[in-house]
Every structure is written in C-alpha cells, then in structure tokens.
Design a protein around this nucleic acid. Sequence first.
DNA 1: CGTGTTATTGAAGTGTATCAAATTGCGTGG
DNA 2: CCACGCAATTTGATACACTTCAATAACACG
Lengths: 232, 232
Amino acid sequence: MSSKKKNDCEPNAISCAMCGAQSQNIICATSPGIPEALEKSKINCRYKRDQVIFYADNDPLGLFFVQRGLVKLERVSEDGAAHTLRIVGPGGILGYRSLFADEAYHATAIAVDEVELCFVPKADILNVFKSHPDVALRLLNHVAKDLRLAEERWVDQMDKGAPERIAEALIFLQDHFHSQTWTRREIAEWAGTTPETVMRTLAQFEKEGLIDQSGRQIQILNKDSLKAKASL
Amino acid sequence: MSSKKKNDCEPNAISCAMCGAQSQNIICATSPGIPEALEKSKINCRYKRDQVIFYADNDPLGLFFVQRGLVKLERVSEDGAAHTLRIVGPGGILGYRSLFADEAYHATAIAVDEVELCFVPKADILNVFKSHPDVALRLLNHVAKDLRLAEERWVDQMDKGAPERIAEALIFLQDHFHSQTWTRREIAEWAGTTPETVMRTLAQFEKEGLIDQSGRQIQILNKDSLKAKASL
DNA sequence: CGTGTTATTGAAGTGTATCAAATTGCGTGG
DNA sequence: CCACGCAATTTGATACACTTCAATAACACG
C-alpha cells in the first residue's frame, strides 16, 4: 500500500522498532525510550534523485532522520554556482543547524540518490530535550565537529591548490560513501572548483597511477600516495 | 596586589558578582546561581598583545570567558600562512568547540590587544550542565550560528573576489569591534587574502570615496556603497 | 635616535576559471 | 530492445585576478 504513492509522506511507514541499526542516529541511539516517544509523531518520506527536501531561506519545521540514501546540503550563489556544504547518509540528521540556531535554512537539501527518511516536528524534538537532557550534549558534540570541518575547509580553500583539494575529496567521498558514484560536477562542488579542473586533475592522477577511471567509476589504486598529494 | 605580577593567573581577582554586564556570557547570564557556582573554581588571567592563550593541537582544559580585550583564533598552515577563524570580544567564550567536540584545539588563541579573562576548569563546566540543562541548549544555539558563519565564509571565498571579501571584512570588523585598529595583515588574514591585495583594494576604495585612510585608521564614509560592493 | 615592523608600490608569474566545441555515455520512451 | 536526446565528459585555447617576490618609504616602539 505504501508503494502506490511515490514521493509522498506517509505516517508510520516504518516503525521505530524496525528501524535498522544503520539508521541509529545520535538522538534515537542515546537512551531507550526515545524512539517510542517519537513513534507517534514521525512521518516517513521518500525522495528521488535531485528532489528537494527543503529549500534555503525557509524556516525549519523539525528534523529529518536519514534512513536510506544520501542527501547533500548545497548553497547556490547569485551567479548560479552550487557548492556542497555537507553530505548526510543513513543515521545522519538534517535540519538541526537551523533548528537549534533558530534561523532559516541556509542551504538546500537535495537527494543524491533514492532517499528514505522520517520527519519529526520541532515540538516533539524539544520534548525529547526536556525528558533526556543528555541529547543536547550529543548534539552539541556533533555540531562542534561540524564546525571544525567547516573551518578547516575554509583554510584548505586558500592554502591548498585544486589538485590537493580534489585528492582530499576523492578520499573523503570514498571513506564515507563508498558505494556511490559521483559526477565530475559533484566532485567539483564538494572540492570547491570546476568540473573541468576536476577532469584534468583526475587525468593527471590516473597518469601517475593513483587512480583508475573506468568510465564514470573511479577506483583509488594508491591511497597513501593520494593522501600525500592531499597533504593529509 | 593583583597588579604586581603580570600575565599571571590569579585566583578570584574579580568576583563574579563584580563582573561587568559586558562580560555576561551565554553561560553566566542564563540563570541565577551559575556565577556563584563558578566563583570558587574560576581563575583570572591577563595577556598582552600577541601572547598565546592556548595552542592548536593541545587538549582543552576548560573554558575561557573574555572580560576585556579581543582574542583571535587563528590557524597557521604548513607554509606559514595564518588565517583568522574567529574573533572573540568581551562576553565571548573561548575553547568551547574543542571542549564539546571532545577534540584537541584546532586553532591557536592569540590576544589582539590587552586581554583579561577568567578560566573555568572542564569539570566545573560539566557540573553546571547537570544542574542547568538549559545551558546546553544555549551553547548549541551559539555553535550552530558559528557553523553557519563558517560555511558561508567558505562559499564566499569562492564566489566573491578579493575586493568583495575585503569590503565585507571592513564592515564586519567595524560592526563588531568598533574601537579597534587593524593592520593590513590582520585584515588580510580575516578576509582570506594577502596584505598587498588589501592595500591596493583599500586605495581603490578610498579613490571611490567609500573609505578614508588616515594612516592606520580606516573610516567608513559610505557604508551602503561598501555593502553593495561586498554584495551584502 | 636607531631598529625592526608595517605600509606602499612595482613588476612578473601562474594557477585556475572561463568559454567553446566535439564526443561519449546514460536514461527514457517508443 | 533499440534509438533518440540530453547531460556529462573531454580537450583546447584564452584571459585574468591574484599571489609572489622585491625594494623603498613611513612609522612605531623601546
């Protein structure tokens, strides 16, 4: 029955008890009782590639828990250039920055592939905070790590050249989202450069025996040398 | 008695009750009773320009509350280039990202001018969390905003040219730390460019009547036009 | 009053974006 | 299942904003 409609939010499509371990996020996994508390208010949703989960400048309504697939948070500048801020996979959460900063979304969330997630309204999340104070500390820990990544990325953008950032991007994308193929454009939007530069750099890496490009598939042959190239 | 030693940490140099409103940070200002709880464990410290409060890669020992002066958080790359991540003034806190991420400092904290602050050990901070659960939410709010600023800065580094970033830097530094003069190098390290480029750009801004440079002092003449130049 | 730091200006080099065009590859619908 | 069409890839040529290096001048500090 749930497969009749597509890209629609349906209540209780997956019970919290059945939610795979892969989707155990820092809120649900914190302490027993929380999944049950959210069970009645959560709503399951599905999205296909390139569909938008939420748009920048809108106000957050709650949190999205990713159960399956990948979601990218991207920002598009006035002249149309897109940049990928974060990528969230199963077990990850979407919308927490804006919710807790009490600000509008500053990025747009887009499905990278077939995505399944569940939404919990703001009010219910805040209730969890009241009953489980340790959840706030876990989220604090998470956002603090995000902040380091963001600030490190800014300095990398200046100190390192495009080849180093692209090498870093390849390693990051493989480490975190192994079973995923990325377009040159997506790699560029993550590494902070252009598809053309990614292209030429990958060709160079292949010539040096660091990677192997079979069509759109990229295999890392020598991870250590690639790390060295990225100054990691 | 407290003025005999310099750059030394002395217990209870300023009581929390006497701490100026300017220094009311998001922890102490949250609810009554917290300052008293920290009173016995806090340690006051003083630093002069360019002195280091803590070094990158060291483990955090607690939190620093800025009472007077400015502190910059900077990261130095392998080739010696310094970049300013954040600037913290009176009422601000230092070291919270690393403490809550449970990571080493990823930046070095340096006094921009004469700085006065008080230090509270990690254990005492965690005690406050237990007795005042709402403090975690306030910190979460603060770090979430930091995260937006950091991510916005990364995209600005790519989308905007040096003149735009420098205009943005001038506005930011004036808005937040009005009574402070900055060297070209400091502006460059904040804007993500070089002192030479800052130099030439400021000369251009002056020619356009946007600012007025009397030696090291920079006056903003036309803030609206400067904002337009920064695409803000 | 010296001395080291900062400011200022000039010239040169370069990495990377930009633009353009051909080719490949993939998804979609017939 | 094949063919079509559009998007992604690939390659080349060009432009240029910015960094880098260098050398002088102005300034602040002890």
